[in-house]
């Protein structure tokens, strides 16, 4: 019961997340979001997000501490996303975390946002099997990772060469007149649709294509062309069928490549993370294909798939347990922090 308590900060995009964990146990996951303020701009406006982070910071910490039923002085270590993400947004979290660590006299860990998306699963399903294959699919990233040791060694196997999977959801939603962010409404619309209605292209699945890289830009364009052709012809757009067929193409490519990565590397554990891992069809298809291939699939609940502070605290907790050295006092933010840098 005397496992360390870690306070985690996440401000890489438009969510202000403050999470608290004790070992692998989730104690609090407080979140504030500026999503609504970005909606009319059709995407996240960095300065608006940064201002919102500053305003939300202390109140969100208070909520997290209250939810966890602890005092700030009970915290044993502080962790913060130091990249990748929007520089101005990241810096609010980094500065706040550095100040809490200094004021509390506790060590500070600057961590990689993507590794944190993987680490969050430990809060629900216990210690990660190592090695695992991890697939991170969010609004800014689509990556396949080999994870020999989440605390210190993460290797990139492949990534998207153009749009991220979540970005494709967001753009297709726009084409279909659905709100931003597009993932949840496309997911909902697809439930009423026929996934085999339209054969949309599967990018980078040819025999000579990079086995673990993704491409969603061609798919997005194909969906847009298909919808625009309908509109030009004055025909109604079958929104549910388009959503379902698009979603099927994404889920098909993602799961096929993830299962292949497991097979090729002799790894029998797959963990999904990132906002798109909340997608119901991706989860179902991954379940099906992993079962068939004898792979143990782990997916955090949708709430923990999108950006939050608990995931940062979860990774911080791993780092503390592994005895990794805390960050230097001159920690800053790195908007393009490489995936293989777990902490810095």
């Amino acid at each position: 019961m005397n496992e360390p308590i870690v306070l985690g900060f996440e401000t890489s995009c438009d969510e202000t997340g403050v999470g608290i964990v004790r070992g692998h146990t989730l104690l609090a996951d407080a979140l504030a979001t500026s999503m609504a303020e970005h909606e009319r701009f059709g995407g996240v406006v960095p300065e608006i997000a940064s201002r919102a982070h500053l305003e939300a910071m202390v109140p969100t910490v208070h909520r997290a501490l209250a939810d966890a039923g602890i005092a700030a002085s009970d915290v044993d270590a502080v962790a913060v996303t130091s990249g990748p993400g929007l520089t101005g947004a990241l810096l609010v979290g980094v500065a706040a975390a550095k100040a809490y660590a200094l004021a509390l006299g506790k060590p500070l860990y600057g961590v990689n946002h993507l590794a944190a998306h993987v680490a969050v699963d430990e809060l629900q399903h216990g210690p990660l099997a190592e090695p695992s294959i991890a697939m991170l699919v969010s609004g800014g990233h689509s990556s396949l990772l080999l994870v020999p040791d989440l605390a210190q060694e993460v290797q990139s196997l492949g990534r998207t060469i153009d749009d991220a999977a979540g970005e494709a959801f967001d753009k297709v939603a726009r084409v279909l007149g659905l709100p931003f962010p597009g993932g949840p409404p496309v997911d909902r619309a697809a439930r009423e649709g026929d996934a085999r209605a339209i054969a949309f292209p599967r990018g980078l699945t040819g025999p000579r294509d990079a086995a673990y890289d993704f491409s969603f830009s061609g798919l997005k364009t194909a969906v847009a062309r298909w919808v625009e052709a309908r509109e030009r012809a004055g025909e109604p757009v079958p929104v549910a069928d388009v959503a379902a067929s698009f979603q099927e193409a994404v889920a098909d490519v993602l799961t096929a490549k993830a299962v292949r990565a497991c097979r090729d590397h002799g790894v029998d554990h797959l963990v999904l993370g990132g906002g798109v891992a909340a997608n119901s069809r991706l989860r179902a298809l991954a379940e099906e294909r992993c079962a068939a291939a004898g792979i143990v699939l782990r997916v955090p609940s949708p709430r923990l798939c999108t950006d939050n502070g608990a995931m940062v605290a979860a990774l911080g907790s791993r780092l503390v347990a592994a005895g990794v050295a805390p960050s230097a006092p001159d920690l800053g933010a790195d908007s393009s922090l490489p995936i293989d840098v777990v902490s810095r």
Binding site: L54, A99, L104
Partner: peptide
């Protein structure tokens, strides 16, 4: 300039809150 300015303000807010 906004980005640098916020660093000082959030640091002050966090230090004061923690103490």
């Amino acid at each position: 300039p906004f980005t640098g300015l916020r660093v000082g303000v959030v640091t002050a807010a966090a230090l004061a809150d923690a103490r």
